[in-house]
Design a protein around this nucleic acid. Structure first.
Lengths: 216, 216, 216, 216
DNA sequence: CATGAATGAGCGTTCATTCAT
DNA sequence: AATGAATGAACGCTCATTCAT
């Protein structure tokens, strides 16, 4: 009876879509299911998002925009000698971002593994930037002698794998490993693991000292 | 017109299904597409695999059976003091397995991220076993003083993430990172990375020596 | 092209379904045939009636509701000594009802002879009520001394057989017996037959008189 | 392992078909269901009966042949003054026939209510003969003054209705009326009802006597 | 004779989207 | 802005039948 404004309707659609795409997959979800769950007329989905495809595009874009913003914001704090700290902070922020957008994270990371034009666009628009920033950080750390030399693409794979995987398989986490990734403390616990990984990239003390000596 | 035997037909269906499920996802692929690609009558899919769902189940089960067989085979070689070597070898074998079943790997790892009864069954049938073996290996390594203490579930997450992710995102690998995961040498290159990760689990020389001294 | 209202569409589907179910049977009719005959999109059948099964259920329920209404209405006029008149009138009304819904009658009476959940529901919902009313009427008539004693279930079988059969086999009626049950006068002619049957239930004059004498 | 001869196979198919056609209807039953139930290869149905349709035709023909044989056999005993006895005996024999072929009776009486070429053939081949014999019997009885005058087609309808209906609705009989038509004694109980009906056709004593007097 | 693979048409249903109201 | 009727294509699946082995 009460009139809802378009902001509400759009948000209700988005919430329903996130839930359903997350749990059943994009192609496994029908627009009618979304409309029913959102208590909204079916036609609104085409009206507001130009169809089911547009709805996914909207979700994915929004997700990666927030994702990239975190990376860019952290990257902007780069100075001489602080690449390790910047990377640490970036990782923590991304973990928080994923945690706050758990359902969206899962669906985005999954849908991006199918061959589609959307996937292509995501890669050229967001993932190349993501790669650029991480690569730059690692390169600078290596140049400054803090990170050991390594094949950077492989390091990027590892970082992304470690970051994303837990949010792609929450049911496995909880039902097999008995870890609750949706609990707030998971972020901090898992963050420690990623710091250990990060430390393993560091030039070890001995080599580092030797390097310094050699330089002198 | 000529009648072919059932082995051929079944295999043609499987090949087509792997390709299409891999590239478009399970729900995004229709049985008619599969039948067309396999040059086979649509009815055969239900006839041989009890429907589209049965086809996926068959693929996933077969994949995880081969996967688990590798883990069990390697695990059987466990002896005192060789956990590190067993794990290394297991990782290499799994990388090879994934490489030889690249398309199947991607589709299995993806489809297992949706909420479904199949997923449930996979977790209780295969993934709990996988967890058991890896956990046992790590625990023994820790007990024997080779691996540093750590929260084992988190280590399992990391290992699985590092192992599976590259095969879940081949397009990202090739188009953004310019790595060709389908080339044979990728396995060996990436294997080195995983060995580095494995080494990072080792008790470092210093502590190890100190421990040995203390024991004497 | 022009949009018609839903009442029209539903009715067109119903008319087509009655005709086709009547002539070819429920399982022998396809939804596409119905849709074509109704000049309506196939999807509307599921849209309005929740599938082919729902369509049959709707038809059967509506039929028996009208059928029972007649029985209840007549039953409500029951008074001391008028059971014979009430039964006569009820039979005439039911004959008219069947005549006005000739096609529906045939399909309902036929489909109710297959083993199905719908059939079960019809029996518990409608036919037990029908039995109750007829049984009550006959029992009262017997108690009051108008009807000869008899095994009531057998009388019910006979009444129902005589009432329904002509409408279950109209082709036989017209092509073998050369009777046109669809002509209006058939109702009145056949009604006379049923009255004769009803009279055969009556205690005959002699016995009746004797009974009365004996009572005095 | 043991080789079955073709007689067995045919009979197994017939038994399975009778059961399934009876319970689910002809169009509601698939040849594969029949083959499964008969433990026989699907192809045999087409091989032996020229398809599903031929199977039904075979069943219906056989049924009506036995049915007609009973009528003809009884009719052959007709003599002056015994029409009533002949009819009684015929009715009893038909009740027995229906009882011994309960499932087949139901399916035949049902399938004969759809519009089909088979139905047409049945009417011209068997039902016209059935009509001829019953009509002749009734006409002779009327001529001889035993049966009251009546519209013969209507009498035929009644006789057929009363005879067939109980076997067309066994579930109704048992679940609503709590009569077990499959029990042997039902035949005799119900036979009494049909004799009462038959007696109601008789010229009553008074009128008969009066007629006789008038004739003299 | 018996088998099971193979066929292609058809099944009932659901799809994403459009559009008049 | 919001509705629900309407569309036609596509969905997964089953059908009765054929036929080489």
């Amino acid at each position: 009876m009460t009139q809802t404004n378009s902001r509400d309707t759009k948000q209700k659609i988005l919430d329903a879509a996130i839930y359903l795409f997350n749990s059943k997959g994009f192609t496994g979800t029908s627009v009618r299911e979304i409309a029913n769950r959102a208590n909204v007329n079916v036609a609104h989905i085409s009206y507001y998002f130009k169809g089911k495809g547009g709805l996914l595009e909207y979700l994915v874009s929004h997700y990666y925009e927030g994702y990239l913003k975190i990376i860019e914001e952290n990257y902007s704090h780069i100075q001489y000698g602080n690449t390790h700290d910047v990377l640490s902070k970036m990782i923590l922020d991304l973990l928080h971002y994923q945690h706050e957008n758990r359902q969206l994270s899962r669906l985005v990371y999954r849908e991006v593994t199918v061959d589609s034009v959307l996937n292509r666009e995501v890669m050229t628009t967001y993932l190349t930037k993501e790669k650029y920033y991480i690569k730059s950080l690692l390169e600078q750390g290596i140049e400054e002698g803090h990170f050991r030399k390594g094949f950077i693409p492989h390091l990027i794979i590892q970082l992304r794998s470690l970051l994303h995987m837990p949010y792609l398989q929450p049911q496995y986490m909880s039902e097999v490993l008995h870890i609750q990734p949706h609990e707030a403390y998971f972020v901090h616990q898992y963050y420690k693991e990623l710091k250990l990984w990060l430390n393993s990239l560091l030039v070890d003390k001995f080599s580092q000292d030797r390097n310094l000596l050699a330089i002198r």
